[in-house]
Design a binder for these strands. Sequence first.
DNA 1: TATTGTTATACTCTATAACTATA
DNA 2: TATAGTTATAGAGTATAACAATA
Lengths: 147, 147
Amino acid sequence: MPNEDKPPPEPLASAPGFLLSWNGQRIARKFAEAIEPLGLRPPHFGVLTLIDASPGSAKRELVERSMIDASTMVAVIDDLEERGLAERRPDPADRRRRAVYLTPQGRRALERGRKAAIATAKDVFGPLDERELATFVRLMRKIAGAD
Amino acid sequence: MPNEDKPPPEPLASAPGFLLSWNGQRIARKFAEAIEPLGLRPPHFGVLTLIDASPGSAKRELVERSMIDASTMVAVIDDLEERGLAERRPDPADRRRRAVYLTPQGRRALERGRKAAIATAKDVFGPLDERELATFVRLMRKIAGAD
DNA sequence: TATTGTTATACTCTATAACTATA
DNA sequence: TATAGTTATAGAGTATAACAATA
């Protein structure tokens, strides 16, 4: 994408919605670049995080907690399994269900991804002081309906 | 996208970068839906805005002020021209150059798009009071490097 | 030789719908 | 009949690289 690091032009840069979308795209792209050397793309990292938070989740549960649809989720879990980062285990109580777990390698990859996320955030949110960053998070959670 | 309006799951919802990306995607999608009845997609609206701000811009100048690459920009201007919203005029001083202008129809479409943007922002930023919204814009401009 | 604009093509990502197995 | 999972396919959106015209 051209001009990724250039400030957005007026009058768009005055519109709150445009600013939100622009900065969102920017950090998403930067994060994607940061984890590319790990062989991961953002959906991989997101799903690793969700599995870690609820080990043994079924695919359907992961879909419910994400913005990833069912068929894409299959592909993401396939990728993770191929790379030895996660594994599906059959559920004896319901043989349709396949519980998903992280491998030790998966946990290491997640840790590396987290470091990349922190580094990216440090870069993008660098212009804000600590207090402003806290305010930012509070407002973003409010907008997201997380509180 | 599934779960578009559901809050993001923890622990992702505590990460500033993830929040920014999530909310950015959410408002971009909502805005795209809002202008779809106008026959416009977000890049169309963005370029209409840029042309309006600098009538007679060349394609290359529009590329410089946006995150849209050259070949996509051609397609966007083609679309706008087909729909009678913009027109290319040859530049007598430099016959390689084609200056782009809005038509009266284009100005009307831009106005409708602006109303959609305002309505979308009202929806997404609804949880914030006026003072919080002002703070949000200030912080976002800082992050974007717009100040 | 550099620059503007364009076209043709390929690629990435995601979504839709049909299918299998189990409940 | 409903649900979990999967696969095959198609689509939108974007980027890459080659090309034509003019400076």
